[in-house]
Simulated scan of single mutants.
Amino acid sequence: MDPYHDGSRAVQDRLGERTTADHIGRSIGRGIREVAAAFLGLQPMLVVGAADRAGRMWSSLLTGAPGFVRATGPHRIAVTGGPPDGDPLAEALATEGTRVGTLALDPRTRRRMRLNGTATPTPRGFAVEAEQVFSNCPRYLQRRKLHAPAPTPAGAVRRGRELTPGRRTLIRSADTFFIATTAADGADASHRGGNPGFIEVTSPTELTWQDYPGNSMYLTLGNLEHDPRAGLLFLDWSTGTTLQLTGTAKATYGARGRTTRFTIAESVETPHASPLRWSAPEYSPANPPLREPA
């Protein structure tokens, strides 16, 4: 079966990368191999993308002691616990049949694995029946060391529609963010990385970023071809504070490359949402220099 829907195929054809995508697409399957199961069992965090009851897309960060995410069969993972209190996806992850995209990313080794499927609540958290399982290359992943977890409790959730000056600073200084998108065949969670400044805050309600060359799958851009809903997650790696944005995204294709513009509908900031504390980054050698303004 073709691992790509017509949105991804449209982008691949537009950019002349269908042949490369066909080759890479052979790595997409339903099975969780032993090496993937071992990788999952070592991870202290998992990014989950899904839609809330109102249909808005969000990307959320889940954390726990290694083993809180584990493979329980060749096509199934179990997650102990869930998102922090007040997280926009708390209800969705407790609802039978939620389509989810998950991303396990390890900054220590610059490895990542994606697993998309359908969630089912369990007494200890939730499980995901896998429909797509695959790994991506380490391009644009920053290396970080993991420090001892901090016992600081999560702060009060702060919601809004426009970006405050502090949130703009967090975004402009970010070298990594996560994006959740969706299509008729399910949800997906992906990663974007670059040198600080690769995300531009163009107004209190809009962001833009250059879409760097990647694995030629175009799963995110393919989803956006037919459904503009998207959810972004920014993480302050040193404090554990998260910033979640939901809204719509649109990609444009021009002589200077691909640019994605994101319009914010709502923001959720949670101080110290994650107990994990990470070192300053060792930037990926693949990160391009920042593009000069047009």
Rank of each mutant, 00 (worst) to 15 (best):
P74V: 05
R99W: 06
A90F: 11
A78Q: 13
T152C: 01
A154R: 01
C137F: 05
H147M: 08
L146I: 03
A148T: 07
A150P: 00
T63I: 05
T102F: 11
G73Y: 08
I77G: 09
L141R: 01
E129L: 14
V157E: 03
A154W: 01
C137Y: 01
F68I: 07
P66V: 04
P83V: 15
R124A: 15
P138I: 06
G101E: 00
G67N: 02
P123N: 02
G86E: 08
A65W: 00
A78D: 15
A127Q: 11
Q142K: 09
G97M: 03
P107V: 06
D106Q: 13
R144E: 08
E91W: 11
R70M: 12
D87T: 09
A78T: 15
N116L: 04
P149W: 03
K145Y: 12
V69G: 03
T98S: 13
T122A: 12
Y140K: 01
A148N: 01
R143I: 08
V69N: 05
P151F: 01
A94R: 15
R112Q: 08
L103F: 02
T109D: 06
R139G: 07
E91N: 13
T63N: 02
L89D: 11
A119Y: 12
T122E: 09
P66N: 03
R108K: 03
T109E: 01
P74H: 10
A65Y: 00
A130P: 07
T122Q: 11
R144L: 03
T72Y: 03
P121K: 03
P83R: 04
T122H: 03
A150N: 11
A154Y: 06
R144K: 03
G73E: 08
R70C: 07
P151D: 06
E96G: 09
F134L: 08
A130F: 06
R144I: 07
A154T: 04
A150E: 14
R111G: 08
L141Q: 10
L103T: 07
S60M: 02
A104C: 14
T102V: 09
I77V: 09
R143S: 08
R110K: 04
P121I: 02
Q142V: 10
P149V: 07
P84Y: 02
P153G: 06
T120W: 07
V79N: 01
D85C: 01
C137H: 05
E91P: 10
A94P: 12
G86I: 01
G155Q: 00
T109G: 03
A154G: 10
T122C: 09
E91G: 14
Q132M: 14
R70E: 14
I77D: 09
R99S: 08
P84A: 09
A127P: 13
N136F: 00
P107K: 12
V69F: 04
P83W: 04
F126T: 08
N116K: 03
G64N: 06
E131P: 10
L103E: 09
L146T: 02
L146D: 01
L62M: 11
H75A: 15
V69L: 07
T80A: 10
L105A: 10
R70Q: 13
L146C: 10
R112M: 06
E96H: 14
P74R: 13
Q132S: 05
A92M: 08
E129F: 06
A71V: 08
P88K: 03
